[in-house]
Design a binder for these strands. Structure first.
Length: 260
DNA sequence: ATGGTTGAAAGTCAA
């Protein structure tokens, strides 16, 4: 079973890039974030001729938005509000192969890494704690957590660890919150487990002159597995070349293949 | 220290 997570940064603008990924990678399920569209305007019909007939989404006008595009049936769809927020940041499903997939778009947190002066940063930290509380009362097995978590936790997840210590996405307090959440599964960061020492990025800013040459990336997009799935994961990788496609998202897809 | 780009939307806000 192949799973892909991708912050698409507008599902409508990039539906042709989605089709290309479906054709080239043939995932069983594609998990999207930042769809930036109301649910009823998401162009799911485009993907049916490619063999993808199962969809679920929590859309929102202009902002946020998460979705599943799947060639296998999905059941028990849930869209969970955390902290009472109406922002569309979570959707989960149970696949016909018996896996529970949680698809998240965590808050970005604004520019200033201080919860007292920046309410977006406070919301980001509180959101992660609320997700942790939610998982603490669940019996987690055969579960996968994917998405744009908007945190690059390890030194090797950013282009310059020291330069980014005060930059939102890599501050110690955010990393602490994410590590605490990981313990709640416990969840295993499978890509980092497979490649413990190398620089790994899934996002490159639009603002760089040449993203490939400057390579000032961060690993914001994650695939976490519960321990019972760890030995079933045969590969996990980042599709870096997608950042070089025409009119790309600033994030690239992350892939995991499981043998169930 | 600053500004750089993109998307949704129709002025800015968010990333």
């Amino acid at each position: 079973m192949k799973i892909i997570t991708w912050n698409i940064n507008s599902i409508r603008l990039r539906s042709s890039l989605i089709s290309k990924i479906l054709e080239e990678e043939e995932p069983d399920i594609l998990c999207l974030q930042e769809c930036k569209s109301p649910s009823e305007d998401m162009p799911f019909g485009v993907f049916e001729p490619l063999g993808y007939k199962f969809f679920a989404c929590w859309g929102q006008k202009s902002y946020n938005g998460v979705a599943f595009i799947s060639r296998i049936p999905l059941e028990n769809i849930e869209k969970r509000k955390f902290l009472g927020s109406e922002q569309a940041r979570h959707i989960s499903a149970i696949t016909s192969t018996g896996l529970t997939i949680h698809n998240f778009y965590f808050p970005a947190g604004g520019d200033i890494p201080d919860r007292n002066s920046n309410e977006k940063f406070a919301f980001k930290l509180d959101y992660i704690k609320a997700v942790e509380e939610y998982f603490s009362v669940l019996d987690l097995s055969k579960s996968i957590l994917v998405g744009d978590l908007n945190i690059a936790p390890e030194e090797q997840d950013v282009w310059d660890h020291k330069k980014l210590l005060k930059v939102v996405s890599h501050t110690p307090i955010e990393v602490d919150h994410l590590r605490s959440l990981a313990k709640s599964g416990p969840w295993i960061d499978v890509l980092r487990k497979k490649y413990p020492d190398e620089k790994l990025f899934s996002w490159w800013s639009y603002r760089a002159k040449d993203w490939l040459v400057s390579n000032k990336g961060r690993r914001l997009d994650h695939i976490w597995l519960t321990e019972d799935l760890l030995d079933k994961c045969k590969s996990c990788y980042i599709l870096k070349e997608v950042r070089g496609w025409s009119s790309p998202s600033d994030h690239v897809p992350v892939v995991a293949e499981l043998v169930l």
